[in-house]
Nucleic acid binder design. Structure first.
Lengths: 182, 182
DNA sequence: CGAACCTTTCAAAGTCATTTGAAATCTAGG
DNA sequence: CCTAGATTTCAAATGACTTTGAAAGGTTCG
């Protein structure tokens, strides 16, 4: 077996790994999570931690942490290659499934927190609405309206996400058909 | 005139400014942009830089920079208060209008970049598809499919954003009606 | 014009998340 | 059970981004 471990990424792979890295970073994850996923996504066979380390020029520790995080998000899978020595990894290729799960899990949490904060703020405002100080009462009234609008927006956002995740299941077909035809 | 400048934020204001601060940070802006916007959003009158500095406990420089950035994003406006000495600021209260503009301007840019990167990667792959090395050709073929799927996803994302921004104009009415009734 | 006051700019300091690499831990084969 | 190779952990280093605060630049009013 020749020196398989030192394979250099193609230009197409560099472009895509960087792209995914930037995008993923933009969405609040670590750049290396995106880069790692992308390398696996473009690899015909599952890859081991060592190969990833070479491909991406990362430290052993970084690879380990990154892989665990990706596993936790369910966007890569462990694979028991027949004879191989250690765990190898493949990317989840059903893109929409992946994206919608991540959105569902993470963004919905944000939305819930936002709704709760708005409700807490409205509760805290209740006393001020009956204040004897007219100016204070007026200010409180304005805030009640504005915070209610925020609350409405948060709820609407939640519904949109819900819709997006449902839609994903439908629209995914077009994409997954591409994926299935190896 | 009593000491108007030292007004302390109500609990409801603290809750909301922190909420918006966190959300905005999550979306890739600075926390103080969110906090500043929120204070203005909850204020009956326009506020000057000094008042904001007191309310948010920031340095003069930070307030100046933050206000300029918010102006650049069009989410606050300068106001010429009748007799007042200096520029004062109000928040843009039409929430959906604001959100959709930001999405349109920023996210669409990301989508465009993603599409372009995918296309570049596919071009760079073209040569490899005709390689004399069978293994290389096979790898190239897989990558062509996978990158095409990414490209499709990027296009779909762009359409979704487009739809979201258009929808905003419709759904905004429900919310703006709340806003208009001072 | 000059004084008082406000705003903007920017280099330096501070803060915080990520990455490193060595040590500890694990696993499988001998 | 021991050794070798691979993986995981974690404290410390790094580096990116933010905030500060002093100095410079503007404005208004006497």
């Amino acid at each position: 077996m020749p020196d398989e471990s030192k394979r250099v990424l193609w230009e197409s792979e560099v472009i895509v790994t960087d792209l995914i890295g930037r995008l993923i970073e933009f969405w609040g994850f670590k750049r290396n999570m995106g880069r790692t996923w992308a390398v696996l996504y473009l690899s015909p066979e599952p890859m081991g931690a060592r190969e990833l380390q070479d491909a991406l020029q990362l430290s052993s520790g970084a690879v380990s942490m990154t892989l665990n995080e990706l596993l936790r998000w369910g966007v890569i899978k462990k694979v028991w290659e027949p004879g191989q020595r250690r765990d190898h990894f493949t990317a989840e290729v059903q893109l929409w499934k992946m994206v919608s799960r991540v959105i569902a899990e993470r963004e919905q949490k944000e939305v819930a927190a936002a709704i709760e904060s708005c409700e807490a703020a409205l509760r805290s405002l209740a006393g001020k609405l009956a204040s004897s100080d007219a100016a204070e009462r007026k200010r409180a009234e304005l805030q009640r309206q504005r915070i209610s609008a925020l609350l409405g927006l948060a709820r609407l956002g939640g519904q949109l996400l819900q819709a997006l995740v449902s839609t994903a299941k439908v629209d995914a077909e077009a994409l997954s058909r591409i994926e299935l035809s190896r």
